[in-house]
Amino acid sequence: MASASIFPSAWEIPVDFTVRKGLPGLTKGEMTIHDAYDNLRFQVHSRLFNSSPWRVKTLLDASGNTLITCVNRQGGWEGFRGNSLDFKDAIFTAHKTVTSPFDAELKVFLMDGSLAQRRLAFRVKGSPFQRSCTIYKENSVVAQANPNFKLGKVIYSRHKFRLTVYPRIDHALVAAILVIFFGGH
């Protein structure tokens, strides 16, 4: 008689990451994302695009391969696959609304083949200053970022915070959304 497996083959559990931003050794605007075992999963590099006023933030995997390039132009952000800036490789557009010095909202629209065909996919609400936000897909929470609190410590660092990504969501896409929310002015 064969026994049933005790553990499922694919766990549907949230994944925690540690995000480090603006720490010594990182230049301004750069960010690293580590898993629970402190292994580097993603890194972010910032730069200006040639002589234009465009700001570019590039999301790389642990090996240094470009996953998503985010470009700030015309009052919003656009995300592209790899190093491309071609509209055929567009993944999303995003627009940030600042409601107060401590609160902001970001709306992320996924592309469906052209700029005319886009749909609201994610909403991000929170405080970039406090390094906390919640990412929603429709009415469901898909990820959350929170500062690392320590017992007995009144002041906490804004340079290191926790990110929890819930099941069935692309971790690289969530990382790119966080780059825009926390680092895109």
Rank of each mutant, 00 (worst) to 15 (best):
82 G>P: 08
95 H>E: 11
115 L>D: 02
22 G>M: 01
86 D>C: 06
112 D>T: 00
40 L>R: 05
65 N>S: 12
82 G>R: 08
106 L>V: 04
117 Q>V: 00
79 G>A: 12
95 H>V: 15
64 G>K: 04
48 L>E: 13
42 F>R: 01
66 T>D: 10
114 S>N: 03
96 K>N: 02
131 R>P: 01
118 R>D: 05
102 F>N: 15
47 R>L: 13
25 G>Q: 07
28 K>G: 07
79 G>L: 02
85 L>S: 12
48 L>K: 14
59 L>H: 02
122 F>N: 03
30 E>H: 03
102 F>I: 05
55 R>V: 15
134 T>D: 04
86 D>L: 13
105 E>H: 09
97 T>D: 11
58 T>W: 11
26 L>T: 00
56 V>W: 08
68 I>H: 04
88 K>G: 07
117 Q>N: 05
30 E>A: 06
36 A>F: 06
50 N>W: 14
118 R>S: 11
43 Q>T: 12
129 F>D: 09
98 V>A: 06
65 N>P: 09
42 F>V: 07
83 N>S: 14
100 S>K: 11
89 D>N: 13
110 L>K: 08
114 S>Y: 00
22 G>H: 01
124 V>H: 01
46 S>Q: 14
24 P>H: 05
42 F>L: 02
108 V>P: 01
54 W>K: 12
24 P>G: 07
83 N>K: 15
115 L>E: 04
103 D>R: 11
121 A>E: 15
103 D>Q: 12
85 L>T: 14
70 C>T: 10
88 K>T: 13
60 L>Q: 12
133 C>E: 00
25 G>K: 03
35 D>W: 03
127 S>G: 04
49 F>Q: 15
93 T>D: 05
124 V>G: 00
92 F>Q: 06
41 R>I: 15
34 H>S: 09
68 I>M: 04
111 M>S: 11
50 N>T: 15
58 T>G: 09
121 A>D: 07
40 L>A: 09
39 N>P: 02
113 G>Q: 02
101 P>G: 01
94 A>H: 00
63 S>R: 14
56 V>T: 11
133 C>G: 02
125 K>M: 07
74 Q>Y: 09
63 S>T: 15
24 P>D: 08
104 A>L: 03
92 F>G: 03
132 S>Y: 05
94 A>V: 02
69 T>K: 15
46 S>T: 15
98 V>I: 14
103 D>T: 04
43 Q>R: 10
34 H>T: 08
114 S>C: 08
38 D>L: 01
30 E>G: 01
72 N>T: 06
43 Q>A: 09
104 A>W: 10
101 P>A: 00
108 V>E: 00
85 L>A: 10
120 L>E: 14
82 G>L: 06
103 D>L: 10
122 F>W: 04
114 S>E: 01
38 D>G: 03
122 F>E: 02
73 R>D: 10
113 G>T: 02
96 K>R: 11
134 T>A: 08
89 D>L: 03
79 G>K: 00
96 K>C: 04
79 G>N: 05
44 V>E: 05
30 E>V: 00
76 G>D: 08
